[in-house]
Amino acid sequence: MKSNATLFDLFLTGALVICVVSLFFLKLFFGKNGSTILIQTSKDKFAYSIDQKIVADISGDLGLTKIEIDNGKFRFLESPCKNKNCVNSGWVRSANFPVVCLPNRVSAYIMKEGDKDASLYDGVTR
């Protein structure tokens, strides 16, 4: 075992750094996001296509939450909650990254392509 950095160390470090950076850019530019946004309240569940430009009015426990969907991304536009943490979360483009408004009991996330969302069903019997 050498006690100083060797050429092999530098090569391995460089290769791993290149792998990590490449993966980052591959995911950034070619990573597939989801096509459906799932919105849940304490009473209902809604599914919207993410590839459209609409503002969805969702009725929660406190009042109306407005969720803006804009071609691949969404954000909580307005909410009757006190702290507005959900509104301050801003735009979400990544799949499986939920935004939750606890006081109004409204949550939303982009479902990843190919994922089966078990939460859409009350129960499954086989």
Binding site: K2, S3, A5, T6, F8
Partner: peptide, 8 residues
């Protein structure tokens, strides 16, 4: 072991 240090 003959070519690496603890960094690898």
């Amino acid at each position: 072991k003959k070519r690496i240090s603890f960094i690898s």
